[in-house]
Nucleic acid binder design. Structure first.
Length: 563
RNA sequence: CGGAGUGUAGCGCAGCCUGGUUAGCGCACCUGGUUUGGGACCAGGGGGUCGAAGGUUCGAAUCCUUUCACUCCGACCA
């Protein structure tokens, strides 16, 4: 390809809203261009990267025995109503009607559609297992799209769905997918961790996320320094905190604490560690058919993990409760304790049998000192957010927090969707049973940006070997110099014939301009054909290190073929 | 969805408050020339429904109303 013919408009200026390197360089390098909020066009270079990633994903999945299909992007709402997600998915699901007033959705994920494809077509255990995937556009009407390709509304995802006759077989496939995803990310040249995750709106019994480690990641992940434990903050567990109670004594009873409403104030008032306080977090839980106030109690030094909290309630969402709503429920804001009546109460697991504690007395201006959880029949659940420095539940090692970008997520789904949609097969005994399913996703378009988040410098992109659109860029320093042009064009032809993907910068621009574009594009190798040609020399530039090596014109071809 | 902004040439912006010639500037673009190892220079040139609709006015980019889009902070987010 000749750069003079390539549609790759580069620019010195980045869009003013671009803050992440991937966003800035992909736009400046002419890889992508925004067309609407959270919607991007792929220009030739961006499309090449996307195709590379898509190809790697496909190769590895096919090797693992998966089969590619392509489902309709527009999905009849009926399917979503059958699974119950039409209501549950919320506003992210873009709904619309056709000219006949029939309702449709733009698929944000395709569990329903894939189950529909398989039901009544796969009828016997003999046809199982089956793992079908597609690499397709998705649409989620994100409340706030940002960060370029990292959080768009329209994006490209690989989504796979497996069907099995037993949980054991599904778990075998789940393990195979974990391995396969690892191979894919390795080939892309990414550093990642597999972490335990919350299953969220998809549901199911277990899930893991593939997190690419990056400073600008949106997800907090917990990593153990001592073993391989790693988890999303939303799902992370720790060894129960050990509290030193040696010099704490309390005489049980109510205590007058006027105006002391926060944990900090309470710790100050009693001159005691927050470890001995009970923090009440009140939320309004919204269910499909009603709303109610729910109370969560955690140790004063802990914070509520909202994803865990949401999951124990089974509600659609949790929102902050207003003081008026709390009072209406018979609660006293600032003095709420676990013995509150007529509301649903969840207590953190680590407070089971804990004593002595200080908690709200459910009475204006009073706390209860010396509270004992022993024998209290609360519903105890894991509710806390793991903090930096907590101890690993697996090995006792120190837990640290880091940032990651989610690029893959695998789920042990079970029979949730097959049951809801009535998708069954006949088992070995001739009995109809719902498929046991797994589901597996990779953010293909997100990966385009992720590669850059992990591989860039202040000048621009640095593509990895398998993602780069071109292997080599030949830069003709002075296009008016006949010798330079002839040599470069000959080399260009030769490398192409030898199977290299080569871009020839034959533009009539100045040297500095072309070098800047080379650095911005980020192809692994550059060849500068310039003033050294008179002495029989050209230079090979390594994009990663930006180091230049003078090479004889005789040997440059072989040198380039080596790498 | 709450709060706050911005829409003027491909991009970045000034002009608006205080209405009044032909709406400017930088970059980019086109032509000619000089230049060619780190985003050059000289000369000439093209490009605008001032986001849209309505209103006030002799006169609107500028004032008013409505609307749309985009962005930022937050909430939200397989």
């Amino acid at each position: 390809m000749k750069l003079s013919k390539l549609f790759a408009p580069t620019s010195k200026e980045a869009p003013k809203d671009a803050v992440l390197p991937s966003h800035i360089f992909l736009v400046r390098g002419g890889f992508i261009a925004q067309i609407g909020s959270g919607i991007y066009n792929y220009l030739p270079l961006g499309k090449m990267v996307l195709d590379n990633i898509r190809r790697i994903v496909k190769e590895e999945l096919d090797k693992a025995g998966n089969q590619e299909v392509l489902l309709g992007f527009v999905t009849p709402s009926q399917l979503w109503k059958e699974s119950g997600r039409y209501e549950r998915f919320g506003k992210e699901l873009l709904r619309f009607k056709d000219r006949k007033e029939n309702e449709f959705v733009l698929g944000p994920t395709h569990e329903e559609a894939m189950v529909d494809l398989v039901r009544n077509r796969v009828k016997s255990y003999k046809e199982l297992p089956l793992n079908l995937y597609q690499i397709h556009t998705k649409f989620r009407d994100e409340a706030r799209p940002r960060y370029g390709l990292l959080r768009g509304r329209e994006f490209i995802m690989k989504d796979g769905y497996s069907f099995h006759e037993s949980v054991e077989d599904m778990q075998r496939e789940y393990a195979l997918m974990e391995e396969t995803y690892g191979k894919i990310l390795d080939r892309l040249g990414l550093t990642y961790r597999v972490v335990e995750a919350d299953s969220g709106a998809i549901g199911g019994s277990g899930s893991k996320e593939f997190m690419v480690l990056a400073e600008n990641g949106e997800d907090d992940i917990v990593i153990c320094e001592g073993c391989d434990y790693a988890a999303n903050i939303e799902a992370a567990k720790r060894a129960a905190k050990v509290i030193d109670k040696s010099d704490v004594e309390m005489t049980p009873g109510p205590f007058h604490t006027p105006g002391v409403k926060t944990i900090e104030a309470l710790a100050e008032f009693f001159k005691i560690s927050e470890d001995f306080l009970v923090k009440a977090v009140a939320k309004k839980a919204i269910f499909e058919d009603h709303e109610e106030i729910v109370l969560f109690f955690v140790r004063g030094s802990d914070t509520l993990q909202e994803t865990k909290a949401l999951s124990v309630t089974g509600a659609l969402e949790l929102v902050d409760a207003t003081e008026a709503e709390l009072e209406a429920a018979g609660l006293v804001p600032g003095y709420i304790g676990p013995d509150a009546e007529n509301v649903t109460v969840y207590v953190d697991e680590e407070l089971r049998d804990e004593a002595p504690m200080i908690c709200g007395a459910n009475r204006e201006d009073y706390h209860y000192v010396g509270y004992d959880f022993k024998g209290k029949p609360f519903t105890y659940k894991d509710l806390i957010t793991v903090q930096e420095g907590d101890r690993c539940a697996k090995c006792g090692g120190k837990l640290t927090l880091t940032k990651g970008i989610e690029v893959g997520h695998i789920f042990q789904l079970g029979t949730k969707y097959s049951e809801a949609l009535g998708a069954t097969f006949l088992d070995r005994n001739g009995k109809a049973r719902p498929f046991v399913m797994g589901t597996y996703g990779i953010g293909v378009s997100r990966l385009v940006a992720v590669v850059i988040e992990q591989h860039h410098d202040e000048k621009g992109c640095i593509w990895t070997e398998e993602t780069t659109p071109f292997d080599i860029m030949i830069i003709i320093s002075n296009i008016k110099d006949e010798a330079q042009r002839t040599f470069a064009e000959t080399l260009y032809e030769k490398l192409q014939d030898a199977g290299k993907r080569v871009l020839l910068d034959d533009r009539s621009e100045r040297f500095g301009f072309k070098m800047s574009d080379f650095e911005l594009f980020g192809f692994p190798k550059g060849v500068i054909v310039g003033k050294g040609l008179k002495e029989g020399k050209v230079e090979i530039v390594d994009r990663k290190t930006l180091s230049k090596t003078a090479v004889d014109t005789e040997t440059v071809f072989d040198k380039l073929m080596e790498s």
